[in-house]
Design a protein around this nucleic acid. Structure first.
Lengths: 203, 203
DNA sequence: CCTTGCTTACTAAGCGCTTGCTTACTTCGT
DNA sequence: ACGAAGTAAGCAAGCGCTTAGTAAGCAAGG
């Protein structure tokens, strides 16, 4: 008999298709990827894709949704590890950059293929992006209020911090100059300076 | 009779096609744009595109090449306006961000559609990108050597500065919170802090 | 134990449509 | 009159997705 929460063969195949779609989308972009590419990547016929998923766009949505939830989670838990805005920003940037370097394949799809989503799916994702943005801005707002960050507009710095992290997905490749950990450390340092963190309060 | 360097009707039509291609590529991406879209945007039949250009990919190459040459020119002339690394960096970032905000349509195509180029064309563009990178790194190297920038690795800061500018093209839209000029000013300030420019030497 | 009937997982074939690009032809400007 | 500029029509290939069907697994009835 079938357990309610057992992992069925179908679930495994579904996941394999999502994985193959992710790899293909990251390598060639959504529109240049064919459903045949994806199916072949999962070792299946192209018809099998439609047994497990409604459409090619749905695969993109699943990838984008999952990626954004992971990112939001990551930022929130980084912020929760401290109550000092300086330390919060430092940890957020470290984890955010680490993620974008390690998972640059996922992150590339998640950030650069959103235009191929249906308007409804796009709105879903936009809501998650807004929450990510607000989490960072809240930290910066408090840091400015407390006097830990000086001479900065929180909104501009929020955009800049997000840009630094997201853009890592565009250019980062394995085997380059920096490991994800080293890069994340350098970027965390830069983010503190960028936010005008007073040297005395930096850690 | 036809002057050697007169602008012929064909030249005008060629340019109109490039312009229509730019708008379409920026709005939907290279692969989601059809040659019929481009031709219609220029008010021509789809066959006319092939009277003036070899292929859809050639249009992308022309756009990308022109955009990169403009950017390189812009950065070089910004750097030439001063001999002080601090001022050079400030001017480079100001102009670079200003360009990416004002011409975010062009910049989006120029930076995010390069994967659709033929390998030969891509190499051409990569050469230009390398020169852009080197121009910025040279300024940072000198600033570090002179002691104007402290506690930074020029290579990381170069990447970060480029990221900040390029990513503007991804998110910037007219009628948002900041005019291109205000944004460029804020980013120039941030870049100086990012590079560890000593407050005493900042202007 | 083995047939029967049903379900799950999958595929071969292909439909209707769109794609980038070409060909053969017409119109325009001088 | 003649080259330059532009088009209508359409081709071969490839697209997302569907259809109709098969093979394998499995619980229940005899």
């Amino acid at each position: 008999m079938a357990d309610a929460d057992a992992i069925s063969k179908a679930d495994v195949t579904r996941a394999r298709l999502i994985d193959a779609a992710l790899i293909a989308f990251a390598a060639k972009g959504f529109h240049a990827t064919t459903t045949r590419d994806i199916a072949a990547g999962a070792g299946l016929s192209s018809a099998a894709l439609y047994v497990h998923h409604k459409s090619k766009e749905e695969l993109l949505y699943l990838i984008a949704h999952n990626g954004h939830e992971q990112t939001l989670q990551l930022i929130r838990s980084a912020a929760a590890k401290s109550t000092s805005p300086v330390e919060q920003l430092q940890r957020i940037v470290y984890d955010f950059v680490l993620y974008h370097a390690r998972e640059h394949t996922t992150a590339r799809v998640v950030n650069y293929e959103l235009g191929a989503l249906t308007p409804e799916h796009y709105k879903e994702i936009a809501r998650l992006r807004h929450r990510i943005d607000r989490t960072i801005r809240t930290v910066l707002d408090r840091g400015v209020f407390d006097g830990d960050f000086v001479a900065v507009e929180p909104r501009v710095v929020t955009v800049a911090v997000l840009s630094l992290g997201i853009d890592v997905a565009r250019w980062y490749r394995e085997g380059g100059t920096w490991t994800p950990e080293v890069l994340a450390q350098r970027y965390a340092d830069m983010a503190l300076r960028l936010a005008g963190a007073q040297p005395a309060t930096r850690r």
